[in-house]
């Protein structure tokens, strides 16, 4: 039974890492209705910029601040150059624009910093916590637990930002109804700029944690694939949904791989969350925490 709980806890902690990426998607979608295909590329770009700056002599704190600045500027530029000219265009046009954007960011990142694989040490060892191993026989990684703590801080911060600040309330108003928000004088494009900048910050946090876990390399762009079933499960517009969805996906894929995998030849971890998400779509298309849309006929 302890092995079952070890798989479950490992899965939940992995799920938190998926949630970190999913959060970036949710922020953009919530405010502008755009599914930002480039979120994975932003994660890659942020991590690569951070390690690139460190290689150029920046200390960690300075590199972090500079990368944050770069991500905010990048977010504002994306809003100004790519999305603003496409206002009032169909959603699919905006989605296609973000697909193009993802390739541009990936190419630009490699042009700027090179395609070498880099290590990233955040000073948190990815090793089991001895006390937990001694008392329970289960291995729980210090790194995974720290990542969960950082994710909790991030979600709390975002929740406070959305609920307690003027900008946050304006963001919520824009998310609820663009036209109504415009009518009461909320500057829509400024809000979108802020959201893209915040998404850039979330990408930086995700990039640092994933980069420290697997190395800073192009494959970081693939973490976006892990976020998709999380979004379907949790809902595209909900921050708590991204967290809960991540936990469900992480736990279910690990349990499925360990307990069902051996019966079907293994390797099901990659697609099992998508099956789960598809089944979920049949019963709750808007996701666990997504808003139910009621259209007048």
């Amino acid at each position: 039974m302890s092995f079952f709980f070890e798989v479950l806890i490992g899965g939940l902690l992995s799920g938190v890492m998926y949630s970190l990426v999913a959060l970036g998607f949710v922020l953009i979608y919530k405010a502008s209705g755009v599914f930002n295909f480039a979120q994975g590329s932003l994660v890659f770009f942020a991590a690569l910029t951070f390690v690139g700056l460190r290689e150029h002599g920046f200390n960690s704190a300075l590199a972090l601040l500079a990368t944050l600045g770069v991500m905010i500027v990048l977010g504002l530029l994306i809003e100004r150059i790519v999305l603003r000219p496409l206002v009032n265009q169909p959603q699919i046009t905006l989605f296609m624009a973000t697909i193009g954007l993802s390739f541009v960011i990936e190419g630009f990142a490699q042009l700027l910093w090179g395609a070498n694989v880099r290590g990233l040490e955040l000073g948190i060892q990815d090793e089991p916590i001895e006390q937990i191993t001694t008392y329970t026989g289960m291995n729980v990684s210090k790194f995974d637990l720290s990542a969960a703590g950082i994710a909790a801080l991030l979600v709390t911060g975002l929740a406070l930002f959305f609920s307690r600040t003027r900008i946050g309330r304006a963001l919520r108003a824009v998310a609820d109804d663009h036209q109504a928000a415009l009518a009461v004088g909320i500057p829509l494009q400024q809000i979108w700029g802020i959201v893209w900048a915040v998404a850039g910050f979330v990408a930086l946090v995700a990039g640092l944690l994933w980069g420290a876990r697997n190395g800073v390399q192009f494959a970081l762009t693939f973490v976006a694939l892990k976020a998709l079933p999380v979004l379907i499960l949790g809902g595209f517009e909900s921050i708590p949904g991204a967290i809960v969805g991540g936990l469900i996906v992480g736990a279910s894929e690990k349990l499925a791989e360990v307990y069902l995998g051996p019966y079907v030849g293994g390797g099901i971890e990659g697609w099992f969350p998508y099956v789960l998400a598809l089944v979920f779509l049949l019963f709750r298309p808007e996701g666990l925490f997504g808003e139910k849309h009621i259209d007048r006929v």
């Binding site: 791989e257 099901i268 971890e269």
Partner: peptide
Amino acid sequence: IPVPHPGNEQGSQWLQVR
């Protein structure tokens, strides 16, 4: 034990190893 592409998540495979 197979690892799905690209292999950026291997918790369950290594728990099986354990």
